[in-house]
Simulated assay, not measured.
Amino acid sequence: MPRVVKPKDVRRAEVLDRALALFLERGYENVSLNDLLAVSGTSKGAFYHYFPSKEALVVALAQRSAGEAFEVLRPVFDQPGKNALERLNAGLAASYQVKLGMGVPEPIAAMRSLLMPENQALFRKIVTIWEDLFRPVLTEVITQGVREGVFDTFDPEGVGDMIQGFAASIQDYLVRMFDAADAKSRRKTIDDCVKRLKLYGIATDRILGLPDGATVVLERKQVEAMMTLFMPSRPAGSLP
């Protein structure tokens, strides 16, 4: 039978899928180019045809991950007939669901692996590309709010960057959840996370010239749900 030659974009997507599975299994730092060639079933020449280097493949993975999230979230931020605060809050609330993969096992497992120390290089690239992709969206929403008189800031893009920085820093608490040895430690991690989220919410409100509590933040029950998703061996009822 003649050999089936797949379109370049299909073959490239397959290489990305297999590389991601390998990174999540072994850790980004523990995967060599030869490992990627073996798992993807490509020659070195064919691999370089798709990706000039291992780092280029990682960037492509990050771009794909961020792009998929963007496709889901952009319509939420762009809802017609909403004022800027309503658009911002809808987008922030939807981001929580998207970043947790809507609770389905595969994205949760991927995120759990990405937060491990050996995958920090890959995770940082994903976060950076995510932020670059969403910067114009947040800037536009905040600029609209200034124009409407809902927000009061002289730097809409800077405020958007601060909001994204607040969101990214929550990953540190997820890592601490992994390391919590007992119920007392888990309870303290949750308490610390909820307190910090409240602070971030107030900070966002104040830099936008809003009353405290105007912007959406995760509540304790949502943080507990996040912990249950990321640590499924610990049933929800065992959380403090």
Rank of each mutant, 00 (worst) to 15 (best):
G158I: 01
D192T: 09
D172T: 10
L197M: 15
E219P: 04
V150R: 07
P232Y: 13
E131C: 05
S238G: 07
M116C: 04
P80A: 09
L218Y: 11
G27M: 08
Y200M: 12
R3K: 13
R112L: 03
V59F: 08
E68F: 00
R112M: 03
L92W: 02
I207V: 13
R12Y: 06
Q171M: 07
D152S: 14
Y50H: 15
G165L: 08
A56L: 11
A84P: 00
L133W: 04
V159T: 07
G45R: 05
Y28V: 04
V4N: 00
R3W: 00
V59K: 02
P80G: 06
Y50S: 10
Q171I: 02
P75K: 06
I142G: 06
K125V: 01
V5D: 02
F154M: 09
V146R: 06
M111Y: 15
I207R: 01
K221S: 14
A236L: 15
D35Y: 06
F178V: 05
P136T: 05
P240F: 08
K99N: 14
S113H: 03
L210K: 01
K8H: 13
R64K: 14
V72F: 10
R12H: 07
E140H: 09
Q164C: 08
G103W: 10
M111D: 12
A180D: 14
A93S: 14
M102E: 13
G41P: 02
L92Q: 03
N119R: 06
L114R: 01
S185E: 15
P136Y: 12
T215L: 06
W130Q: 02
D132S: 10
V159M: 01
V58C: 05
G213M: 06
D132T: 03
V194H: 12
P156I: 01
D179R: 14
T153S: 12
Y200E: 13
A38L: 11
N34R: 15
V146N: 05
S169V: 03
Y48L: 12
L73H: 02
Q164H: 08
T215Y: 09
P107K: 11
D132G: 09
R18H: 09
W130V: 00
L36V: 04
N30G: 04
D205C: 03
